[in-house]
C-alpha cells in the first residue's frame, strides 16, 4: 500500500533533519492518496494553514507542498505547553509522467488540502462508440 509508482513521497531528507534535531526542520503533514479511473486525489492535514500561507509547486515531476500555520502569539508571551514543535509544514512527492501536472487543482478547507491530479487525457478510460454499419 505504501509503494506506488505514481506518487512517491520523498521523506528521507526531512526525517534525517528531524533525527539530527535541527531546529529548522519542518513537519511532514500526514496524507491520504487514492486513485480512481481518472486520476489521483491527495488529502493533506495542514491545521492552522490558510490559503494565503499555502504554497504548492510543481517542477517537472516534483510536487512540493509547503505551508505555515499562523500563530497569533502576542509579543513576550511564551507557550506554557507546546506539543507542536514547528509551525512549518513541508512535503515533497515525485509524480509519474502519467499525471497531467498542468491540470492539478487544489482546494483548502478547515485545514485540509485536497489536490486533484488527473491522469493524462490519453490514459483516461474512454468509451468508444460503436457506429452502426
Amino acid at each position: 500500500m505504501s509503494e506506488n509508482k505514481h506518487i512517491e513521497a520523498q521523506d528521507q531528507e526531512n526525517s534525517a533533519m528531524q533525527a539530527r534535531g535541527e531546529p529548522e526542520s519542518v513537519m511532514l503533514p500526514p496524507v491520504d492518496i487514492y486513485e480512481d479511473a481518472n486520476g489521483f486525489t491527495l488529502l493533506a492535514d495542514l491545521p492552522g494553514v490558510t490559503r494565503e500561507r499555502l504554497n504548492i509547486q510543481v517542477d517537472g515531476n516534483d510536487l512540493t507542498i509547503e505551508g505555515e500555520a499562523a500563530i497569533d502569539m502576542p509579543e513576550n508571551m511564551d507557550a506554557l505547553y507546546a506539543d507542536v514543535a514547528s509551525t512549518r509544514y513541508q512535503r515533497r512527492f515525485t509524480l509519474s509522467s502519467e499525471l497531467a501536472t498542468d491540470d492539478i487543482r487544489a482546494e483548502m478547507k478547515d485545514g485540509v488540502l485536497t489536490l486533484r491530479m488527473p491522469k493524462r487525457a490519453e490514459l483516461q478510460p474512454r468509451k468508444i462508440e460503436v457506429s452502426a454499419g
Binding site: 492535514d45 508571551m77 485540509v112
Partner: peptide, 19 residues
C-alpha cells in the same frame, strides 16, 4: 496535539483538529 499559552487575562488552548 495542543499548544497552550497564557496571557494576562486568559489562557488559550489551541488544538489541531483539521477537517
Amino acid at each position: 496535539v495542543v499548544d497552550i499559552r497564557e496571557e494576562e487575562d486568559k489562557f488559550v488552548i489551541s488544538a489541531d483538529i483539521p477537517g
